[in-house]
């Protein structure tokens, strides 16, 4: 059985509290990209991160930010690895993460797990709450977002697209 020490839990919380470089409203834990934090020696920590998209350019910044946070906590050796499997999905974003995205003006992703396929109607404008929105572009300012417009308040907004 794999056990987690109190120190590991503390380090995991620290690494998880690092903000996402491109969506600073979210922490890495809320985004669901932090897979593991392990002490491999008393002064050595191994961190596993998974990318949202394979080419996500924020990954290197995330790794550097985690290293800095753990160094500041007195851990001299920090190794950050990238793991691809199982692939990240937007279902890994926590409920708190979804709430923060909406408050930030980004429509959170709809569930992709087993069950009925979500229909566009369930997507709400993060500004006025209207469900009458139109897709402008499947690709937006980052790989993980699509660009939509609200037909009620006429504001364009980003949608964290389902993956």
């Amino acid at each position: 059985m794999v056990t987690t020490t109190a120190l590991e839990a503390e380090l995991r919380a620290l690494a998880g509290a690092v903000p996402d470089p491109e969506l600073p409203v979210l922490t890495l834990a809320e985004l669901g990209v932090l897979r593991d934090v392990r002490l491999t020696a008393p002064d050595r920590v191994e961190v596993c991160l998974t990318p949202t998209y394979t080419g996500c350019p924020a990954l290197e910044t995330m790794a550097a930010d985690i290293e800095r946070a753990l160094h500041d906590h007195g851990i001299p050796h920090v190794e950050v690895h990238t793991v691809l499997s199982p692939p990240w999905t937007t279902d890994a974003i926590t409920d708190e993460g979804r709430r923060k995205l909406a408050a930030f003006g980004i429509a959170p992703p709809r569930p992709t797990g087993p069950g009925p396929v979500p229909v566009d109607l369930t997507l709400r404008c993060p500004h006025c709450g209207s469900t009458d929105t139109t897709l402008l572009s499947r690709f937006s300012s980052t790989a993980c977002k699509a660009l939509r417009r609200c037909e009620t308040c006429r504001e364009p907004f980003d949608h964290f697209k389902e993956l």
Binding site: P51, Y53, T54, G55, C56, P57, L84, L136, S137, R138, F139, S140, S141, A143, L147
Partner: peptide, 20 residues
């Protein structure tokens, strides 16, 4: 502009796959 962003995003996905 939307296509500018779309094609660059697709290119970025492919570059990420190529690096792995």
């Amino acid at each position: 502009l939307e296509e500018e962003v779309a094609l660059a995003n697709i290119a970025l996905d492919l570059l990420g796959q190529a690096r792995v």
